[in-house]
């Protein structure tokens, strides 16, 4: 990984996310390459995905670039969540779900038997559409995956917990009740806790499935700022129905559509290009809010 300042990594044309920018201590920056020098980190080739007899994704081929934010947009049911879940093989847990095609993460085929799924999932953080805190205390939510990873010393876990909670702007709200149940947090706080929990494992990749859909505009703004600050340190794939948000934070955008019976990738490109000069008429209609 090479250096690059916050400014460099954010294309000048993009609006700087509002308040709170830089308010979090993200620790030492290990910035990734600037986004005009794309190196694929996740390579998806001819991915098809079926739930029983129903095809949800048909032949998707897509590269996700290291250190960049890639937004997945498209109508409901076009397979965005399914696409995300196949990257960390979470689809293995869904009965009747089968994938074909090849996905490589950092050059290594995730379907090969040599690939350790558990290690893969520790490298890939995932935030779900609905907040999914465990029904245990706030600190234990973060400790559990850390223990599994082999980080067990109290001092270490405490330091990581504080760091990631500061990163998501939750520390000041919960520092006095780390041992309270995570279910006692508000929905927005729960979602930020889930993001913190994913960050605690120091993943290389973050998959975020509509992380702001359950949040009010303020919490959504906080999360959005956070995502902006994570750019460069993490490779982020974010699903969002909020096109303005995609436009604000993403470097690349992929537009999915349900064609025939299955979801497929219609267009992939620089965020600016997708929104300002889409090559495909479906994309143009969707980003301009016209019904396709």
């Amino acid at each position: 990984m090479h250096g690059g300042s916050e400014q460099l990594r954010r294309p000048a044309s993009e609006k700087t996310p509002g308040k709170g920018d830089g308010a979090y201590t993200l620790g030492p920056m290990q910035a990734g390459p600037v986004c005009c020098d794309p190196q694929p980190l996740i390579q998806v080739d001819n991915l098809s995905l079926r739930y029983g007899a129903k095809t949800a994704l048909d032949n998707v081929t897509l590269d996700i670039y290291r250190g960049c934010i890639t937004a997945l947009i498209g109508p409901s049911g076009c397979g965005k969540t399914s696409f995300l879940s196949s990257i960390n093989r979470l689809t293995d847990l869904i009965p009747g779900c089968r994938t074909t095609g090849r996905i490589r993460v950092d050059g290594c085929d995730i379907h090969e038997s040599a690939c350790d799924v558990q290690a893969l999932r520790q490298r890939i953080g995932m935030v779900f559409q609905k907040p999914t805190p465990f029904p245990v205390s706030i600190s234990r939510n973060i400790e559990l995956p850390l223990h599994e990873r082999g980080i067990k010393r109290r001092a270490d876990t405490a330091a990581i917990i504080e760091q990631v909670l500061r990163d998501v702007g939750l520390w000041d709200e919960v520092r006095d009740r780390l041992h309270a149940s995570a279910l006692s947090l508000s929905g927005g706080q729960q979602q930020r806790l889930c993001i913190a929990r994913a960050l605690a494992l120091n993943p290389q990749i973050l998959l975020m499935d509509e992380p702001c859909s359950a949040l009010d505009p303020i919490a959504s703004g906080i999360v959005e700022d956070l995502i902006g600050q994570l750019r460069g340190r993490y490779t982020i794939v974010i699903v969002t129905h909020n096109l303005a948000q995609a436009r604000r934070i993403a470097n690349y955008a992929a537009f999915f559509w349900v064609g025939g019976h299955a979801g497929r990738l219609v267009e992939f490109g620089h965020c600016r290009q997708i929104f300002e000069s889409p090559a495909h008429e479906l994309t143009a209609a969707y980003v301009n809010g016209v019904r396709g």
């Binding site: 847990l93 999932r121 520790q122 999914t132 559990l144 995956p145 599994e148 990873r149 929990r197 994913a198």
Partner: peptide, 15 residues
């Protein structure tokens, strides 16, 4: 959701 998020965090089935 607990099973899915635990798996996504790289936790083993046993844990």
């Amino acid at each position: 959701a607990y099973r899915l998020s635990a798996a996504a965090l790289g936790m083993s089935r046993k844990t």
